[in-house]
């Protein structure tokens, strides 16, 4: 475990300057702002988002308009198989500069596909941008449903937004009433088992990765990892689409917190991997 948060060129705090995006984005609206900027400036011609269907169920979707991208703002704490649409996007949608967002595991899948494009010949040349989001853990849909309906007493069809922070899962109802908080230790038993052997917190293989941890409320941390990511973010800043501030390198809530959480995840999950190997169970590494 040499580098807790992987390789990067630069790390900043940033926030979208578009008030409409911020109204319902999870954090600083980086993903939504990048997608819309890419689409409006020809850097991307279509993007994959995690939208929701009935009952706040995540559903990947190919978005080609500002409206469709806006509609998918916000984090869904259940699996959204975003990779499953990559090929469709490039084939029958004929997209040539596809934007992709995913959890670290999905970003790993995407990068593997780009390295070894078996059955994806042609597809890999048409990926315009790979955005990663931070991810500590995720939940199967039915687990999330049990949590929200049983613990929080909110029907899935009435959920506006969910957020994990400050040791709690917050459920925001559509009627605008106060969010209901569920302590993380209650949610743990519902986590996906695969997340317990996952060794990536900050999407180490993305062009750039983003999450809330390390930055003030309403802002996002952006870890710029390669030239494509840097060019993209630089252009957005130059176009006035992002406002930025240096990442907090002093207090324990800034850079130190990202490193700490990432190290914690890797340490804990490395143990679980060892345990599973001992038990003769399969692990993905």
């Amino acid at each position: 475990m040499t580098k807790p948060i992987g390789d990067y060129i630069e790390i900043i705090s940033a926030r979208s300057t578009d008030q409409e995006i911020l109204k319902r984005s999870q954090d600083g609206g980086i993903v939504t702002a990048a997608y819309i900027y890419g689409l409006e400036n020809g850097l991307l011609d279509g993007v994959i988002v995690a939208d929701t269907t009935e009952g706040f169920k995540p559903m990947p979707k190919i978005a080609k308009t500002r409206e469709d991208i806006l509609s998918a703002r916000g984090t869904k704490y259940s699996l959204s198989p975003n990779m499953s649409l990559v090929k469709d996007a490039v084939k029958e949608h004929a997209l040539e500069k596809l934007g992709f967002v995913g959890t670290p595991c999905q970003v790993i899948a995407m990068k593997k596909m780009m390295q070894y494009p078996a059955a994806f010949r042609g597809t890999v040349n048409n990926i315009g941008l790979v955005i990663g989001i931070f991810c500590m853990e995720n939940f199967p849909y039915n687990g999330m449903k049990t949590l929200i309906e049983e613990y929080a007493g909110v029907k899935m069809t009435d959920v506006l937004k969910t957020d994990i922070g400050k040791g709690k899962l917050f459920v925001y109802p559509k009627d605008g009433s106060e969010p209901i908080a569920i302590p993380i230790k209650e949610t743990m038993p519902f986590e996906q088992k695969s997340c317990h052997v996952c060794m990536d917190y900050t999407s180490e293989y993305a062009d750039f990765a983003t999450g809330s941890v390390g930055s003030p409320d309403g802002w996002s941390t952006v870890i710029i990892r390669n030239k494509r990511g840097k060019d993209f973010i630089d252009k957005m800043i130059a176009a006035g689409k992002l406002e930025t501030q240096p990442l907090d390198m002093e207090s324990k809530f800034g850079f130190a917190m990202i490193e700490k959480l990432s190290t914690d995840k890797k340490t804990k999950n490395a143990k679980e991997i060892e345990h599973r190997i001992e038990m003769g169970l399969p692990v993905p590494y």
């Binding site: 080609k64 469709d88 084939k91 029958e92 949608h93 004929a94």
Partner: peptide, 12 residues
């Protein structure tokens, strides 16, 4: 198995 999008049609 699949139809194509209008954008794909234009490109073709």
């Amino acid at each position: 198995a699949k139809n194509i999008t209008p954008e794909a049609k234009e490109k073709l």
